[in-house]
Design a protein around this nucleic acid. Sequence first.
DNA 1: TATTTTAGTGAACGGTGTTTACTTTCTGAA
DNA 2: TTCAGAAAGTAAACACCGTTCACTAAAATA
Lengths: 219, 219
Amino acid sequence: MTATVSSPAERRRNKIRARILSAAERVFAREGVEGLSIRRLAENIDYSPAAIYKYFKSKDELIDELKETFFELILENVHRIADTSTPFNERARDCVATYVMIAVEKPYHYAAAFAGEAADNRVAPVDDEPGFELSKKGQAFNVLRGMIAEGVENGAFRSEIDPSLAAKSVWASMHGLTMMIVHIPSFPALKADQATMSREDFILFHADQVIRGLEMHNE
Amino acid sequence: MTATVSSPAERRRNKIRARILSAAERVFAREGVEGLSIRRLAENIDYSPAAIYKYFKSKDELIDELKETFFELILENVHRIADTSTPFNERARDCVATYVMIAVEKPYHYAAAFAGEAADNRVAPVDDEPGFELSKKGQAFNVLRGMIAEGVENGAFRSEIDPSLAAKSVWASMHGLTMMIVHIPSFPALKADQATMSREDFILFHADQVIRGLEMHNE
DNA sequence: TATTTTAGTGAACGGTGTTTACTTTCTGAA
DNA sequence: TTCAGAAAGTAAACACCGTTCACTAAAATA
């Protein structure tokens, strides 16, 4: 599709860029923003600190790329579950659970992805913006919205539900559990109360609660 | 209760400590951790940077006190709603909504309260630990757990629900919405989709979803 | 080949949290 | 009242940080 008739120079450049990114990824995954310094990174790949700035405008831009790649991973996994043919309610629940499970595998990435004040949180292009490409985060949101719309249509969820609104609410709930686990490593066990449930089971329990909130009540 | 027969020296010391804290609070509320530097704080109260360290062991310890005071505010507000005599389901929903609404009034405080890896997240004292005092955060959690236990008892919530577990799930959902609003200032409006609902209404909608997840289904 | 672009660097700027050695001020007991 | 010891406060330094600038060396282009 995209014709990549890159010159040798360009290919060499991309290679070095990739080396920087992969060194950064390694440090970042282990120690987060705190541990990742330009100077340390430069030493790691045997360049001067200033050299990094020939490849990235700033530390933030570098980290942004790590985050985007990470959300690509989340998106792939959620998509895989969403395209399954298991019963709808179970499938919806597993999507929520999968988001959390993959996300918490790289706690620093996830936390960083939401740390910046006003990252790119678009959800649709405005009119016909030319080169617009939705962020992976935005794409993941759209999968969620589509799934909820499906539930409303097939009668699994309450008919008065607005899929866009509900998707935001569900997303907030997923986000919350993920952040809890990220920031409180022992979660759901709180200090001095015996853990009564494994983390995986708790994630499924939570996902179940979230989906239940959307379902029909016959009251 | 606590006999405060403080010497003049001690009172003077506490006064200065309080002055430091209040200057820190002012800066922190406006600009967060990034904006609050020891040097700037020192200049603000006309002391040398090193002087701060006679009153606080580290910047982190100083900020910890700001966070605890902040959670005291949340706790008070949630308690006030919990002690109301409005119908149970409505009351439960309002507790959740209030937590979020108060929390987002000081975004930097809330974000910081969960930023540190392993803060104090106890929920009960181990056996008879002598001078143990539950953090305000922990106390707020206990209010939530009590309320859910009440719901299970009076039949509003499903009988198989474990209040401790459910409280963690609900807490995660509240936390998630709060974090979303904190990190994405325009939430629930996402870029390039028209905001279809005010923030207050969305918080109530979310709280409602969360409580619904606990309710009986007659399926 | 001559010229322009690019890759890479060392040194500096202005900032950070924290420690250390030092002086001054206050306090509590003989 | 005097005097030892504690406490309050400080200037200067340490070891970092992200970023910029002036510069050289190498490669690409014309």
